[in-house]
Simulated assay, not measured.
Amino acid sequence: MTAKERNEMSPESDSLFEFPCDFPIKVMGRAHPDFAETIVEAVRPFDASFDASRIETRASSGGNYTGLTITVRAVSREQLDDIYRALTGHPMVSVVL
């Protein structure tokens, strides 16, 4: 098998993204004054350059939930998987898209 054939069969070649790239993630949870700051703290270990000033925040119509759109600098599929695991496992997070 040639190096080119091995590269074509690698899991990275199955990716729909070219890394590195900016990748938006939607995070929803119960309204809490520290929700955005908590999400920043959960993401920073995986993206040290994460810019918290770019977070888009939306309250639900009833005000019970907060939705955030965060944009991370994705460098690999593994990094994105780690971020999703950290967010979905966090007790303040209800949904991650």
Rank of each mutant, 00 (worst) to 15 (best):
M1S: 12
T2N: 13
T2L: 05
K4R: 11
E5K: 08
E5W: 02
R6A: 13
R6G: 04
R6P: 00
E8T: 12
E8L: 15
E8P: 00
M9T: 11
M9D: 14
S10L: 06
P11T: 05
E12N: 02
E12L: 06
E12G: 01
D14K: 10
S15F: 08
L16S: 11
F17A: 03
E18Y: 01
E18H: 02
P20M: 13
C21E: 07
F23S: 04
P24L: 05
P24Y: 02
P24D: 05
K26G: 00
V27K: 05
V27T: 08
V27G: 03
M28A: 07
M28L: 15
M28S: 15
M28I: 14
G29R: 04
R30I: 12
R30H: 10
R30Q: 09
R30N: 11
A31Q: 14
A31R: 13
H32C: 12
P33T: 14
D34I: 05
D34V: 09
D34F: 03
F35A: 07
F35E: 04
A36H: 04
A36L: 06
A36Q: 07
E37I: 01
E37L: 10
E37N: 15
E37C: 01
T38E: 15
T38F: 00
T38N: 13
I39Q: 04
V40F: 01
E41G: 10
A42V: 08
V43I: 15
R44K: 15
P45E: 02
P45R: 01
F46E: 03
F46G: 02
F46K: 00
D51M: 04
D51A: 14
A52P: 02
A52K: 15
A52H: 08
S53F: 00
S53G: 10
R54T: 12
R54V: 05
I55C: 03
E56P: 02
T57K: 14
R58N: 11
A59K: 09
A59L: 11
S60Q: 04
S61H: 09
S61M: 05
G62I: 01
G62A: 09
G62E: 05
G63E: 11
G63M: 12
N64T: 14
N64F: 10
Y65T: 12
Y65D: 15
Y65H: 12
T66H: 04
T66E: 14
G67L: 06
G67I: 02
L68M: 14
L68R: 09
T69A: 09
T69W: 01
T69G: 02
I70A: 04
I70S: 03
T71W: 03
V72L: 07
R73P: 01
R73K: 14
A74C: 06
S76F: 02
S76V: 09
S76L: 09
R77V: 04
E78S: 11
Q79H: 04
L80E: 00
L80H: 03
D82P: 01
I83A: 02
Y84M: 02
Y84V: 09
Y84L: 07
Y84I: 05
Y84N: 00
R85E: 14
R85M: 06
A86H: 06
L87P: 03
L87R: 06
G89R: 09
G89K: 06
G89L: 11
H90A: 12
P91S: 14
M92A: 15
V93L: 08
S94T: 10
S94D: 13
S94M: 09
V95K: 13
V96L: 07
V96D: 03
V96R: 07
L97G: 05
L97N: 10
